[in-house]
Structures are given as structure tokens and as C-alpha cells.
């Protein structure tokens, strides 16, 4: 039961982030909600590779062959975080530019696309 609850956490983070994005009234808030939604994937794949009582897959202090978690999902998460950070930065740059052009960050006020 506790094990199942651990998998509920990423689902909750995902839906909460999505709700924040859909109801957002500020582009900065919207971008942060997108980051939160994305972070649910880190939690999910790390949990899939987790093993009770296991160590990190770095065999410097422990002997090779010690019970360790899945290194593949760790590697995926690592690169995922870097890419997530840069995508957030790119979106923030767009938000800056929109604010400069229109003077507002409210997505509701940006009814039409204008060149």
C-alpha cells in the first residue's frame, strides 16, 4: 500500500502542474507550473528504478556487486534536468520579450498573435 502511494506522488505532481498551467494568469507562473509538471517525470522514473535497501550505482566506497538501484534511469534523470533547465530559460526569454512588446504577462490579455 505504501509502495503504491509512492507512485501516486508523480501522478499528483503532474496533474497539479497541469491545473496550474491551465488556470494561470501570469506567464512566469505558467512556466514554473510547466517545470513542476516536468519534474513529475523525474520522480516517476527514479521510483521505477528504485530498489529497497539498495545503494547508489557508484562503486567507489562499496564493492561491485552490492545491491544498487538502476543506473539507466539515474542517467536519464540527470540529462533530463539539464535540458529542463534550459527549456525553462528559453521560455522565460520568450516571456521577457512578450512583456517588452505588450507590457503584460497575462496570457488572457494576449488574445491575438501579432507580428
Amino acid at each position: 500500500m505504501i509502495g503504491y502511494l509512492a507512485f501516486v506522488v508523480p501522478v499528483w505532481i503532474f496533474v497539479a502542474g497541469l491545473y496550474g498551467m491551465a488556470t494561470s494568469r501570469n506567464l512566469i507562473h505558467l512556466i514554473l507550473c510547466l517545470s513542476i509538471t516536468q519534474s513529475s517525470t523525474y520522480v516517476l522514473i527514479l521510483e521505477v528504478g528504485y530498489r529497497l535497501g539498495a545503494t547508489a550505482p557508484v562503486f567507489s566506497d562499496v564493492l561491485p556487486g552490492t545491491r544498487a538501484v538502476d543506473p539507466v534511469v539515474d542517467a536519464l534523470t540527470l540529462t533530463d534536468i539539464v535540458v529542463g533547465a534550459t527549456v525553462t530559460a528559453l521560455l522565460l526569454a520568450f516571456a521577457l520579450r512578450i512583456h517588452k512588446r505588450t507590457g503584460t504577462l497575462d496570457p488572457e490579455a494576449l488574445r491575438e498573435m501579432s507580428g
Partner: peptide
Amino acid sequence: AVGGLPSFGHYPGPYGDVLNT
């Protein structure tokens, strides 16, 4: 959907285990 995943804390392998070995 997550109800269909392998139970938490019991990573079934095999790729991670092969790499670790």
C-alpha cells in the same frame, strides 16, 4: 496506470543489473 507498474522498491531489471555487474 501506475497500478500496473512493478511494485515499488522491487526493480525487476535486467538492464540496470547487467550494467551494475
